[in-house]
Amino acid sequence: MIIREIREDEIEQLTELYFHYTKKENLPEIPKEKIKSIWNEIQKNPCVHYFVIESENQIAASCILSTTPSFIRGGSAYGVIEHVVTDSRFRKRGFAKELLTYSLEYAWNQGCTEVMLLSGFDDTGAHRIYEKLGFDRHERIGFIKFKP
């Protein structure tokens, strides 16, 4: 198992991995030009990190950590983790825990004083993992609004 940032040649594997994360209707096909544009934006932004676990020569799990500079808490940054997903063939091996531990350590080293994580309301198995890592579901209330 290797934890690292994703490479451009793995984007197709990442999009396939997302089928283990969300419904197919949430994954419309993206034209190759747009994929390249998204990749270029990710590469230019030092605050966005797509971390992956490589196992058996493929991407087994991934998440996104975004860090944001802030004028609160003495100018410390904060982090947000999203799209935590493990390929169903690799579940129950502790990959999510390892990936999140790595992401948290990375955030702390970048000067973040807090990291928030968003999760689907009904994913209780994942919630247990998050709480074991110290995430507190009662500390904040999260809201989401989708574009109409």
Score class of each variant (00 low, 15 high):
Thr22Arg: 13
Glu12Tyr: 00
Glu41Gln: 13
Asn26Ser: 11
Pro31Val: 04
Phe19Leu: 10
Thr22Ala: 11
Leu17Pro: 00
Ile30Arg: 03
Lys24Thr: 09
Ile35Trp: 01
Trp39Gln: 13
Phe19Ile: 06
Asn26Gln: 14
Asn40Ala: 09
Glu25Leu: 12
Asn40Cys: 04
Thr15Pro: 00
Lys23Cys: 13
Leu17Ile: 09
Leu27Glu: 14
Pro28Lys: 15
Tyr18Gly: 02
Asn26Tyr: 08
Asn26Val: 09
Glu25Lys: 14
Lys23Glu: 15
Phe19Trp: 00
Phe19Glu: 08
Glu33Gln: 10
Ile35Tyr: 01
Gln13Ser: 07
Leu14Glu: 06
Glu25Thr: 14
Asn26Asp: 12
Glu41Ile: 14
Leu14Ile: 09
Lys32Glu: 10
Leu27Trp: 12
Gln13Trp: 00
Phe19Thr: 11
Pro31Phe: 00
Lys23Ser: 15
Ile42Arg: 14
His20Ser: 10
Ile35Met: 08
Ser37Asn: 12
Pro28Asp: 15
Leu27Val: 13
Ile35Asn: 03
Trp39Phe: 08
Asn26Leu: 09
Trp39Ser: 12
Lys34Arg: 13
Glu41Ala: 14
Glu41Pro: 01
Pro28Met: 15
Trp39Lys: 12
Gln13Thr: 01
Glu16Pro: 00
Lys34Phe: 03
Tyr21Ala: 11
Lys24Gln: 11
Thr15Asp: 01
Trp39Met: 11
Lys36His: 07
Lys34Pro: 00
Glu33Phe: 03
Ile35Phe: 00
Leu17His: 02
Asn40Tyr: 02
Glu29Pro: 02
Lys36Asn: 07
Leu14Arg: 08
Glu12Val: 03
Tyr21Trp: 08
Gln13Arg: 06
Pro28Ser: 15
Lys34Tyr: 05
Asn40Arg: 09
